[in-house]
Design a protein around this nucleic acid. Structure first.
Lengths: 297, 297
DNA sequence: GTTCCGCATGAATCGATAG
DNA sequence: ACTATCGATTCATGCGGAA
């Protein structure tokens, strides 16, 4: 029986035991942060977070394909005025399990509400930790290219009409000056700092991330037809993103209300047409290994 | 004899042994990153970075006042396709020395080195790790307030010279050059994500951080007359910032060329007039402890 | 004097080549 | 098989020369 395209009720650690080895292309998840969401997840204490999480990452390791990627969206809690160490401890321990700590993306949350405490400012970013089983993982960089200096174009748009005219006449053809540098270079690769607004919604889910976030990573690390797993699927955002991008999904959650909510939300969704950028990517595997000569191990 | 307002040649670990306990208000430094700048610093191997650094942080701990702060600008190197763990190991070990890991600021570098690789994008951020000896540290939050959103856009709309536009900070959370002009409008507290360009250009030193970066932390964690220490002072940027803000400084570097360069650079500098924002702060101590209710533990 | 454009270059990383 | 060095990649920025 097909194991994909379902939202499954249960503890991911147990549920995944019935899954075959090497069947998942991307794991994208935002687990319950320590001591948060206690009503729905039982409130794991920061000091016990690592031991709670490690058996689960062991299962993730088993079900993930060697070319697959595990993206973990997580943030430290401040405990007694200090950042707790469970995230960095988790990285150390995950490496002992065999995970490679390939990268750490920064999610800069553009629209957080301003806040102030006596000894700290608003925490305006989260970690998106990339783990891999193997250095030769699949990556489709072309799928997430961004327009060159979208901000620069914005600025040009603000030039007054007279300025534009002046520049044009001086240059003789087309846009003058700086614009010429951009011709033929309209798309560039992004960096590892991701600027995205937090979801302003509700959804009854206390840890909602914006749909754009899983979408970005799904486009980057999978091709259509691949399988995306979210073992803490919550309100189903990751599953929604997978469906819209024409990928298969597996969602797991221990809370039945979330499972119901997820199933409701995905019922109405369907694949979107791919953007030009995505088509351009054409799913050329730009795996690390491809660039090696064949003789090498 | 006065120990401040000097650039000292030597290994900070040794030099600081002659300093009294609890004499420094802020340590701001960007140590040589593992295996980088090997010409000038001897190129510490990533695997030995922590053991190399820890004796130094022990001295930092001794000379720092209980109300003082230690800001460490550091980044992991990628080794064999994986982020090396020396930074997170350092955080763990520093905590064993007694340091509190209070906060981690993110420096988003607007212009970092270009590049695209098979398995990663440009690394566009660095960590600014805040350590303290005590939960009750001094913090002057009003000194770094920034104009509320949209100010950048308004300004950009009025400018017609593209070159000037290019120079303007477009980041909402601050650090524009003319912030003081905007006093009187709505000011808000910044977040822990800092947007700033790296210093490039044709100075004699291998580009370090921009002057704005130490300035921001000096304003946030010290008042005029306080003592700022940079144990890896390099080209002297931290010392320059301290002088311009009317603080005392101590700079140490093991490399005599850097010491000479630093001394040259600071020779010409002098305190600037404080901005309105800084005056407004008026050095109201917003220590953590002050805001607690007396009854609370 | 001012505006505009060309160009060197930087806390980088990877893969290939050489020792 | 391992380490050391080198070339290719790639773009925001400041500076200097030109218009």
């Amino acid at each position: 029986m097909k194991f994909t395209d379902k939202i499954i009720l249960g503890d991911c650690e147990k549920v995944l035991q019935d899954f075959p080895d090497n069947c998942i292309d991307l794991i994208f998840t935002s687990p319950p942060y320590a001591d948060q969401r206690s009503k729905t997840y039982g409130g794991i204490k920061p000091d016990h977070y690592v031991e709670w999480f490690l058996p689960k990452t062991a299962q993730f390791f088993r079900v993930l394909k060697p070319t697959g990627t595990f993206i973990l969206n997580i943030k430290e809690r401040v405990v007694d005025g200090e950042r707790h160490t469970y995230v960095i401890d988790l990285i150390s321990k995950a490496r002992e399990q065999g995970w490679l700590w390939t990268e750490e993306f920064i999610w800069h949350k553009k629209n957080s509400y301003p806040g102030k405490w006596p000894n700290r400012f608003r925490d305006n970013w989260e970690r998106l930790i990339q783990f891999n089983k193997d250095k030769n993982f699949a990556m489709y960089q072309e799928a997430v290219m961004v327009p060159v200096g979208s901000w620069a174009k914005e600025r040009l748009a603000k030039l007054s009409e007279t300025d534009k005219i002046r520049d044009e006449s001086r240059a003789g053809s087309g846009f003058g000056k700086n614009v010429s540098n951009w011709i033929g270079r309209d798309m560039v690769y992004p960096t590892n700092v991701i600027h995205m607004a937090t979801e302003t919604g509700n959804k009854n889910h206390s840890a909602v991330f914006p749909l754009d976030l899983p979408e970005w990573f799904i486009k980057l690390f999978t091709k259509p037809g691949d399988v995306v797993l979210d073992p803490f699927v919550g309100s189903g955002t990751t599953a929604l993103a997978a469906i819209e991008l024409g990928r298969n999904f597996v969602g797991i959650d221990i809370n039945s209300e979330y499972v119901t909510l997820s199933r409701e939300r995905i019922k109405e969704s369907q694949p979107r047409l791919p953007s030009i950028a995505e088509k351009k990517a054409k799913y050329i595997v730009t795996k690390n290994g491809k660039h090696r000569k064949t003789g090498k191990k």
